[in-house]
Amino acid sequence: MTIRGRGLSPVLRWGLTLLLLVTVLWLVDPAAVGGQLQNVHGPWLLAALVITPFQVVISAWRWQFTVRRLGGQLPLGYAIGEYYLGTLVNQLVPGGVVGDAGRALRHRQRMKTTTLAVHGVMIERLSGQLVLFLLAAVLAAAWLPLPKPPMPGLFLLPGVLIVILLTWSLFQAPPLANWWAGFQADVRRALLSRSALPLQLASSLAVIVSYLAAFWCLAMGLGLSVAVDAPGLLLALCTVLLMAMVIPLTVSGWGIRESAAAVLWPLAGMDAEQGVALAVSYGVLVLVSALPGVFFLFSGGRQTPGRTAYQCPD
């Protein structure tokens, strides 16, 4: 599940993306970033690209597993095709959730059950992001310099509490309260139950490890010494970049990811240009790896999921 920025139109999102990228390039040395990217070693770039199909297959299996836990059916071949297509849409359409919404919509049309289709995608995405935040917390605590008490951001606590209270009161409205109760039950069934949680955690961890492995391969290809000298630090920084990409204010995380790299790398004692070059190369890698989605867009031979025995109030 992704944070949704409904207030921004696609034009504003594209504008914000370009503004952030231009600002980052203005703050760093564009020639240094370009030189870093031009000297990337092809074999390492190919290694990073080879990892990406495994990400899609594992993610599609996680989606299939989630749907089955909810009582539905989702053939793995169909799930892989839909995941490729959804990833491609997320790369091209502002917001970062349109591809996931499309997966849910097409699944709903075939299954005739809105609740299962929507909850299946939401819980599958929630599984991945929960593991990402947990792993990021562990790596950050182990490798990143954390501020000492008193925390500089402590003044933000009242604002955070207000947001939590407002959100809680919003969910007390009868329509949302009813949906929230049903969603919680599905989360317990497909994610938090004793039989589901280990597989959800293992599959999500495998996906995130593959993301980090791709980052490491790109860092090696760019000749970044941190990939050899302090791989733990590199992976901790990259988990923060992955979390930055979750914020759906720009197109596929462009601008936000590079801005985060430009800030984080100097804080870790490295050149900002290296972090920006790594962030840009990762963005290009994700876009290229999603291109097979074009085949599934025009292919009419994707396997159709079977009917479901899941009874849900639509």
Rank of each mutant, 00 (worst) to 15 (best):
R103W: 00
A141N: 04
I58G: 03
V33N: 03
A137E: 05
V288F: 12
L134M: 14
L135S: 10
L92H: 07
L157K: 04
G293A: 05
L170A: 15
A309C: 07
C238G: 04
V121F: 01
P175D: 02
I51D: 01
R62L: 15
V207F: 01
C217L: 09
S252K: 02
S169R: 15
V57E: 05
T17H: 09
G275Y: 01
M243C: 10
F171N: 09
V50L: 15
L25V: 05
L12V: 02
L291Q: 09
R108W: 11
T17G: 10
L222C: 07
R307C: 06
F65L: 12
V50R: 04
S127F: 07
G42F: 14
V121K: 00
L205A: 15
M220W: 08
L161F: 11
W265F: 15
Q311F: 05
A268F: 04
R62M: 12
L139E: 01
P305F: 06
V284Q: 04
F171M: 09
L212Q: 00
P43S: 09
Q55V: 14
Q73N: 13
A219W: 12
I58A: 11
G223R: 12
G120W: 00
M270I: 02
H107T: 12
V11G: 13
P30C: 04
P147E: 11
P248N: 10
R108M: 08
P145L: 06
Y211F: 15
L176Y: 07
P150A: 12
L197D: 01
Q172L: 12
L192W: 14
A227C: 06
L156Q: 12
L222W: 08
A260I: 10
F296P: 00
P292Y: 03
